[in-house]
Simulated scan of single mutants.
Amino acid sequence: MTAQRVAIVSGGSRGIGKAVATTLGARGFAVVVGYAAQQASADEVVASITAHGGRALAVRADVAEEKDVVQLFDTAELEFGGVDVVVNAAGRMYLAPVAELDLEELDAMHRTNIRGTFVMAREAARRVRPGGTIVNFSTSQVVLQFPTYAAYAASKGAVEAMTLSLARDLRGRDVTANAVAPGATATDMFLDGKSEELVERLAKQPPLERLGQPEDIAEVVAFLASPAGHWVNGQVVRANGGMA
């Protein structure tokens, strides 16, 4: 009997991370839903997965804290027997022109997006089983370069560089590492503070003329996490409807 594959999804309580967790759960993965503060939302994701016959649990973890991340992986191994897929969907976004940038916001964003991804990736590199994968999250703003996105895009550019080196660090392990770079996606984080007019204008920019949905991105992650996607390694997949 083939052992059940196990996925850890940081930022799994909302937005794209929630969609990833539920999609992987539906594909037969046991899922550890990592969350920082949204316990009720994380519990809802777990309930959704288990209601459909899956296995899941929620674990609180600050991805930038080494001890939290170690506990996250320890729990996955104790409860489900190992780790096959790690999805680093936890993220923070702060938008401002460079001249008006709040450096405390910059530090907080980089702590989650850069340090948090690195801490998660480091633990994943130590523990993911052969045949597994690590998926980090970038943003298509690294190449689109819209105004006010400088600091956020810079943090995600670091994630892309980290991911490409990580794939090569894992030589001989049969573990892949890729980054997914969404474009405009209809999540609370993206929609917050934007007018309906601005959202409509952004939705018209891709050739497909709509915003991405969290499920669109989750399907890309599910492919990378599957045996069918295992030959994709050391890549940045720009899932943005054709914007760049």
Results as ranks from 00 to 15, higher is better:
111 R>A: 10
149 Y>W: 10
209 E>W: 12
136 N>T: 06
197 E>S: 13
176 T>W: 01
116 G>F: 00
173 R>D: 02
192 D>E: 15
187 T>I: 06
125 A>M: 00
208 L>S: 10
121 A>S: 13
175 V>S: 02
140 S>F: 07
108 A>N: 15
190 F>G: 09
161 A>F: 06
116 G>P: 05
134 I>F: 02
167 A>C: 02
153 A>N: 09
140 S>Y: 04
165 S>R: 14
153 A>G: 06
133 T>K: 06
124 A>Y: 01
148 T>A: 04
118 F>L: 15
168 R>Y: 05
151 A>I: 01
102 D>N: 13
120 M>E: 02
95 L>A: 08
118 F>I: 14
148 T>N: 09
181 A>T: 03
135 V>C: 01
174 D>F: 14
123 E>P: 03
107 D>S: 11
145 Q>L: 12
96 A>S: 11
184 A>C: 09
160 E>G: 08
194 K>A: 11
149 Y>N: 14
146 F>P: 01
163 T>D: 03
164 L>P: 02
120 M>C: 14
107 D>K: 08
114 I>M: 14
119 V>T: 14
131 G>T: 05
160 E>P: 00
155 S>A: 10
117 T>G: 07
194 K>C: 11
196 E>P: 13
138 S>K: 08
98 V>E: 04
175 V>C: 04
171 R>F: 11
96 A>K: 05
125 A>T: 03
192 D>T: 15
201 R>H: 13
123 E>Q: 15
182 P>L: 03
153 A>L: 08
115 R>P: 02
192 D>M: 14
149 Y>S: 12
197 E>A: 15
192 D>V: 14
178 N>G: 04
